[in-house]
Simulated scan of single mutants.
Amino acid sequence: MSGDNDGPRARAPAASTSSSPGAYREHGGGRVGDVAGPRAPPFFRPDTKLLVPPLNCSMVASGVWRSGHPLPLNFAFLDKLALRTIIYVGDKNMQAAYLGWAQERGIRVHHIRMESCKLPFVENDPGAVTAALEVLADGRNLPVLVHSDKGKHRVGVLVGAMRKILQNWSLASVFDEYSQFAAGKEDGDIEFIEIFQARIVYDPAHAPRWLRAGAGCVARPE
Rank of each mutant, 00 (worst) to 15 (best):
I107V: 13
P70F: 04
K92F: 02
R108K: 09
G100N: 15
S67D: 06
H69L: 14
G100S: 14
N93M: 11
R84S: 11
H111K: 02
V109E: 12
A76M: 13
S67R: 03
L55W: 12
R105T: 05
S58K: 06
G68W: 08
N74M: 10
A97Q: 15
D91P: 05
D79F: 00
I86Y: 00
K80H: 00
Y88R: 01
L78A: 07
Y88H: 06
L83T: 04
P72Y: 00
G90I: 09
K92Q: 12
L73E: 00
R66M: 08
H111L: 12
N56R: 14
G68R: 10
R66T: 00
L78C: 10
Q103T: 05
H69N: 09
E104D: 06
H111E: 15
L99R: 05
L55H: 04
Y88L: 08
C57T: 04
A61G: 02
R113L: 12
L73K: 15
V89R: 00
M59K: 12
K92G: 11
E104H: 14
G63V: 11
L83V: 07
R84Q: 09
A61I: 02
G106K: 11
W101T: 14
A76I: 08
G90N: 07
W101M: 12
A82K: 15
R84I: 07
G63M: 08
S67H: 08
L73F: 00
G90Q: 08
R66W: 09
W101V: 12
H111F: 05
D79Q: 13
A61W: 09
M59G: 03
H110A: 09
L73D: 04
L81I: 08
A102M: 07
R113P: 03
A97Y: 03
M94A: 12
Q103G: 11
N74Y: 01
N56P: 03
G100F: 02
A96N: 14
S62C: 10
A76R: 15
C57A: 07
G63K: 03
R105E: 02
M94Q: 14
R108S: 15
P72D: 03
D79V: 11
A96F: 05
I112A: 10
L55I: 05
G100K: 09
H69W: 02
L99T: 03
S58Y: 15
R113Y: 10
S58V: 02
H111Q: 10
H110R: 02
A76N: 13
A97G: 08
T85A: 03
Q95F: 00
A102S: 14
F75Y: 11
G106T: 09
A61Y: 06
Y88D: 13
Q103I: 01
D79C: 10
D79L: 11
M59D: 06
A97T: 04
S67V: 01
P70I: 04
C57K: 01
S67N: 11
V60D: 06
H110N: 11
I107A: 07
N93Q: 12
W65M: 06
S58Q: 07
V60E: 06
S62K: 08
G68S: 08
R113Q: 13
A96G: 07
V109C: 13
K92P: 05
I112E: 14
